[in-house]
Amino acid sequence: KTYTFRVRIVDEETGEEKEIEVTAKSEEEAKKAAEELKKKYPNLKVELE
Rank of each mutant, 00 (worst) to 15 (best):
K1W: 04
K1N: 09
K1R: 09
K1Y: 05
Y3D: 05
T4G: 04
T4I: 14
T4A: 05
T4K: 12
T4D: 04
T4R: 10
F5T: 02
F5V: 13
R6W: 12
R6G: 02
R6E: 02
R6N: 05
R6V: 14
R6H: 09
V7A: 02
V7G: 01
V7C: 06
V7M: 06
V7W: 03
V7H: 00
R8W: 14
R8G: 02
R8D: 00
R8Q: 03
I9F: 11
I9N: 00
I9Q: 00
I9H: 01
V10H: 06
V10M: 08
V10F: 13
V10G: 01
V10K: 09
V10I: 13
D11Y: 03
D11H: 03
D11G: 01
D11R: 01
E12Q: 09
E12P: 15
E12C: 15
E12Y: 09
E13G: 07
E13D: 09
E13L: 14
E13C: 14
E13I: 12
T14Q: 01
T14N: 04
G15K: 03
G15H: 03
G15Y: 02
G15T: 01
G15Q: 03
G15E: 01
G15V: 00
G15N: 03
E16T: 07
E16Q: 08
E17H: 09
E17Y: 14
E17S: 13
K18N: 07
K18Q: 12
E19I: 15
E19L: 15
E19A: 06
E19V: 15
I20D: 00
I20V: 08
E21M: 14
E21N: 06
E21H: 09
V22I: 15
V22M: 07
V22Y: 06
V22G: 02
V22W: 06
T23A: 07
T23W: 12
T23S: 11
A24M: 05
A24S: 05
A24W: 04
A24R: 03
A24E: 02
A24N: 02
A24F: 14
K25V: 12
K25N: 14
S26W: 02
S26N: 10
S26E: 02
E27Y: 15
E27V: 13
E27I: 14
E27A: 10
E27G: 04
E28R: 07
E28Q: 09
E28M: 08
E29V: 03
E29R: 02
E29A: 08
E29D: 12
E29Q: 07
A30Y: 07
A30H: 01
A30I: 07
K31H: 13
K31L: 14
K31M: 13
K31N: 09
K32A: 11
K32D: 07
K32G: 06
K32V: 10
K32M: 11
K32E: 11
A33S: 05
A33K: 14
A33T: 08
A33E: 05
A33M: 14
A33Q: 10
A33L: 15
A34F: 15
A34G: 04
E35D: 10
E35H: 07
E35W: 08
E35N: 10
E35M: 10
E36M: 10
E36R: 09
L37Y: 08
L37H: 02
L37Q: 02
L37W: 08
K38T: 07
K38R: 13
K38Y: 11
K39T: 07
K39N: 06
K39S: 06
K40H: 07
K40Y: 07
K40W: 08
K40C: 11
Y41A: 02
Y41H: 05
Y41I: 03
P42D: 04
P42V: 04
P42I: 04
N43F: 09
N43W: 09
N43T: 09
L44K: 07
L44N: 05
K45N: 06
K45Q: 08
K45P: 03
K45E: 04
V46M: 09
V46W: 09
E47R: 08
E47T: 14
E47W: 12
L48Q: 05
L48F: 13
L48I: 13
L48P: 05
L48M: 12
L48K: 05
L48V: 11
E49D: 09
E49G: 11
E49C: 14
E49M: 14
E49F: 04
